[in-house]
Nucleic acid binder design. Sequence first.
DNA 1: TATTAGCACTCACCACTGTTGAGTGCTAAC
DNA 2: GTTAGCACTCAACAGTGGTGAGTGCTAATA
Lengths: 348, 348
Amino acid sequence: MADTLSERSQNILEAIVEDYIASAEPVGSRAISRKHNFNLSPASVRNVMADLEEMGLLCSPHTSSGRIPTGKGFQYYIDTLLSVRTLNRNEKQNLRNSYRFQNMRMEDIMQEVGRVLSGLSQYTGLVMAPKFISTVFRQIEFIRLSQGRLLMIYVSETGLVQNKVIEADPSLTVRDLEQISSYLNSELNGLSIQEVRTKLKQELQEDRVCYDRLKKQALKLSCAALQDEIEDQIYVSGASLMLGQPEFSTPEQMKRLISAFESKKLLIELLDRGQSAQGVQIFIGSDSSQVDLEGCSLITSNFSNQKGAVGTLGVIGPVRMNYSQVVPIVDFTAQLVSRVLDREIAQD
Amino acid sequence: MADTLSERSQNILEAIVEDYIASAEPVGSRAISRKHNFNLSPASVRNVMADLEEMGLLCSPHTSSGRIPTGKGFQYYIDTLLSVRTLNRNEKQNLRNSYRFQNMRMEDIMQEVGRVLSGLSQYTGLVMAPKFISTVFRQIEFIRLSQGRLLMIYVSETGLVQNKVIEADPSLTVRDLEQISSYLNSELNGLSIQEVRTKLKQELQEDRVCYDRLKKQALKLSCAALQDEIEDQIYVSGASLMLGQPEFSTPEQMKRLISAFESKKLLIELLDRGQSAQGVQIFIGSDSSQVDLEGCSLITSNFSNQKGAVGTLGVIGPVRMNYSQVVPIVDFTAQLVSRVLDREIAQD
DNA sequence: TATTAGCACTCACCACTGTTGAGTGCTAAC
DNA sequence: GTTAGCACTCAACAGTGGTGAGTGCTAATA
């Protein structure tokens, strides 16, 4: 249906969306007719606007005000009118220079990416580290805490460190633990966590009556350590920048937004949606059915290393976001991070 | 000077502060004379208020409004009028039950403490994990990332995990690294980082011409790993609750506050101030010389295990905070966390 | 002599008012 | 099909007057 728009209607819609992105205020017919030289009088523009409003692409806050694009209007703009520039060589180099990845831990990299994304876009940067389950096993260590409690430390191929407290047989000695981790490290090295789990399941079944005490303990410990999901890690940068946007300028909206950012659950849910897809994805607030993030749009892209560990990064801003500027930044940053993660892998 | 206040003046000041804490609005003479039965007419109360204003303990936002306490007024109230209840057995048990510390990593514990402090006080919870330098060495591991780059993982006695990327001689094999960490783990176990550093310095001087290649590498690596400071970890919970306080209800103040919370540097600076002192400490916003945290007060207490690793936790709220309610919560929580940390230590 | 009733005064707050200007829809002329 | 003209709408703003909570001062009072 939307594709049946005449060229004139498309041009006017585009002009309205772009004016609105720039000004955050309702766009009137006179402004459109003057600034963009369509050679149309305000009255003609008004006729088109009335059509667009009927189609649900525009709306007016009150009778005698200009129009603003609806969620559907933005969607149409993004789907069919938005032309995303690719960065030229200079811009790519500049972007590359914005990031400092030398000698950084995975955690630092994620944080840095969020910070830079937020700084460049002037919106809020989001980064979700690769999920535990999508990582590749590299090394595991067990450290005794108190009686019967162990600290498990897991390192993935990309240097992502996760740890977790597990309960264990109190009779295990430090020597035992060393042997167990050494055994696991040689057995599981290079497997994805998915594969690790399958393998552990198999071995547990095969060795139901296993007389090698240490092997049995090793299986038991690694099960406790690697079977459950480990909480997603998410980094939010520049939340305060959102408070400068006119759509979130009332105290109520500020509270709502900061609460939504604080809970992180919402954000994780939202970022998860993009996990399966490739390339840049755009989610428009109104369709997200997240009341607390109403009025927000999200631009995300996945990053991954060659072994397939997938994380997501992106920018969240008002629906009235500067898509043509932010999309290429998110896109190229994801590529950049992917390359950095590959460099992290040891060349053994 | 302030101690020369007559009993009547003290009573009235106390009444004003407490009314203001409850209502967040200027307190008038009539309200004081009615609610608290001093048997004084409003006019008499006014006389006293005029004195208190002259002494800088009160001020009035405009000519014909009630009075509000100044920073100095709050300081006086805290120093000489505030009587802090100690929690009774029931309340202590309730508080204990609010926390779930089972099988938690240090990180989780810190986060949980922040969350609960914020929930109970309805202000913002702050927790700063024990500083790297105040921890006691437990275990160190090295994992090869790419050519010449190692991931160092350090675990303190309380189970605090820190990691860091360091550069290293690319010729070191995995076997070498195992031997190095095993050597360091036996040499440094139980020493405070402070002691570790002294020891490393000594050994480096003694063995300037050392022919044991591995020992030399071990010293070099541990220096790179443990010599520098590792960034402070700070947890902020319930920032959005502050936005509900009337003193931060304008958009400008909200932005200022959220920005201040986001930078974390300010908060670390503030929490550091309390590190040396013992027991509960109270900082009043206006004296903090932190423009961005104007209007905020901070209640902190340190926690530590028997080996002396010190962290700080607390609550940040408006100057008009309910001190008599929050102080005991912060106090007891710090004791609770200290005990939990001691339980974490292995009984070898 | 300390306390208090009385009074004039101040000022934030609120509801109401009229004006302005940007923008609209409709209609008739081009 | 396009557009000039016109009546209409409505948010935003500034001004206005009333209300009430509160003050400082003074003179009367216990």
